[in-house]
């Protein structure tokens, strides 16, 4: 009986530990997601794939596809995906809470104490310096993910064509996803 209990307790503990680390990892990611959800992707790669091996790069790419196919913030959707993969629905909720809590806290602090926050030159200059780094982060995420998902030459063509539709014809992002999914149906010998 005793070993059974210990095992059960260990399972419970490791369950709690994984939930706690999910929360802390996504809290950290949420706090450093500046200027749009995509900044989060290199952070996730670093924390979730490289450091902790919670999911594979392949699963990560599927996760981003799902995050973009669903409405709402990319950051929240990606957190839901990873949380659910790692620890089920509970994990999803914990990861989302971790992602949004830094936002909630900082907005409340700013709204309560210093609405003139955005007038502060130090803050403005900090973000003036950080924004180009945000761009660098997104570009390095594009390269990392592109290496995986643009292996086939026709995918490069599709991606460029879609970019043209998006930027030149101003098609809605969800239409871009729908067109790509439909095109996928007609492509043979996908691996």
């Amino acid at each position: 009986m005793k070993p059974d209990n210990t095992e059960k307790r260990n399972q419970l503990n490791s369950g709690k530990i994984i939930l706690f680390s999910l929360f802390s990892v996504f809290f950290k990611i949420g706090a450093f997601t500046w200027g749009g959800g995509y900044v989060m992707l290199p952070l996730i790669r670093n924390e979730v794939i490289q450091k902790r091996n919670w999911i594979t790069m392949e699963e990560f790419i599927d996760g981003i596809s799902i995050a973009q196919s669903a409405p709402g913030a990319i950051a929240v959707n990606t957190a839901t995906f990873i949380g659910n993969k790692v620890a089920g629905k509970k994990g999803a909720i914990i990861a989302v809470l971790g992602t949004i809590l830094p936002s909630y806290i900082s907005i409340m602090v700013i709204a309560t104490f210093f609405l003139e926050f955005r007038e502060m030159t130090v803050v403005q200059n900090f973000f003036k310096g950080a924004t180009p780094a945000v761009l660098a982060l997104i570009i390095s995420a594009i390269i990392d993910i592109g290496k995986q998902s643009l292996k086939k030459y026709y995918n490069v063509i599709i991606s460029v064509g879609l970019l043209f539709l998006l930027l030149y014809f101003q098609l809605h992002p969800i239409l871009i996803i729908i067109i790509a999914g439909t095109l996928g149906l007609f492509i043979k010998e996908q691996t």
């Binding site: 790419i61 196919s69 592109g146 998902s149 599709i158 998006l166 930027l167 439909t182």
Partner: peptide, 22 residues
């Protein structure tokens, strides 16, 4: 499976657009 894989290049497209908008 084909639809899911078909979406992959669009993922890159949307990320490039995000970089472009910055």
């Amino acid at each position: 499976n084909k639809v899911v894989k078909g979406i992959r290049p669009a993922v890159i497209t949307l990320m490039v657009a995000a970089a472009y908008s910055i």
